[in-house]
Computed example of a mutant assay.
Amino acid sequence: MSKAHKATNQEQFLLRRKLAVEGLGENQWEGLIHDLSHHPCVDFAERESNGTLKVTYDGTHWSVDELLELIKAYGGRIKTGWWTRCKLAWYRFTDDNVRANAKHEPFCCSKIPPMKK
C-alpha cells in the first residue's frame, strides 16, 4: 500500500534517502524523527531497527546537506566509509539535478530554442 504524500510536495521531485546514523540516543532519535516529520519539505521519515534513517523529501526545496546538518544538530553522525562517501556524492548530484530540472522551462522541438541573454 502506498503512502499518501503531503499536499505541499510534488511527487515527481521526491527523493528517497537511506543513511546509517551513529551516536544518537533513544530520545534524540525520537526528536529527530519528530522534527523531520513536521518539516514542510520532508514527506516521510522513519528509523529502522539497525540505526538507519529513511527519509523522503522534496528535492526542489531541501538537500541531503541540510539533512546532515539536522542530524549533526542532534548529536549524531553518519557512518564513515567508502560506500557512504559514494552514496553522499550521488545524493548531492541528484539533489542538484532535481533542482535544475524543476527550474527548466521546456520548449517545443519544432521551435527555435530560447536564446540566452
Rank of each mutant, 00 (worst) to 15 (best):
E48M: 11
G31M: 14
G59M: 10
C41N: 14
N50H: 01
Y57M: 03
N27V: 15
A45Q: 06
T52G: 11
G51N: 06
V55H: 02
V55E: 02
L24N: 04
S37Y: 00
G59S: 07
N27M: 15
N27P: 14
W62C: 03
L36M: 04
L19F: 06
H39A: 07
I33S: 04
W62L: 08
P40K: 05
E26C: 09
F44K: 05
P40S: 06
N27H: 15
C41V: 10
V42P: 00
N27T: 15
G51L: 05
L36S: 01
D43I: 02
L14Y: 09
E30A: 14
L24I: 04
D35L: 15
L36A: 04
W62A: 08
V55K: 01
K18M: 13
G23A: 02
P40Q: 07
H38A: 03
G31R: 15
W29H: 07
D35P: 07
T60Q: 07
D43S: 03
E48F: 10
L53C: 03
E26Y: 11
V42W: 04
L14P: 01
D43V: 09
N27E: 15
A45P: 00
G23R: 08
K54Y: 13
L36D: 05
L36F: 08
R47L: 10
S37A: 13
D58K: 06
E48V: 08
E26W: 12
K18G: 03
A45S: 06
D35W: 15
T60K: 12
E48K: 10
L32I: 02
N50T: 09
N27F: 14
F44S: 02
H61D: 12
W62N: 03
V64G: 00
D58V: 00
L36C: 02
G31H: 15
V64A: 01
R16L: 12
G25F: 08
G31V: 13
P40D: 00
H34P: 01
E30M: 12
D35T: 14
L19D: 00
H34N: 11
Y57V: 00
L36N: 03
V42S: 05
V55Q: 01
R47W: 02
I33E: 11
D58I: 03
F44C: 09
G51E: 06
G51M: 01
S63N: 05
T56Y: 12
R47T: 03
G23L: 04
H39N: 07
H34C: 09
A20T: 12
E46A: 09
L36K: 04
H34M: 10
C41R: 11
E46H: 10
G25P: 06
R17H: 10
L36Y: 05
G23K: 02
H39F: 05
P40H: 03
H39Y: 04
T56P: 06
G59H: 07
E26D: 13
T56V: 14
L14W: 10
E46P: 04
Q28T: 08
L53S: 01
T56N: 13
G59V: 07
L24K: 02
S49N: 09
D35E: 15
A20F: 14
L15A: 03
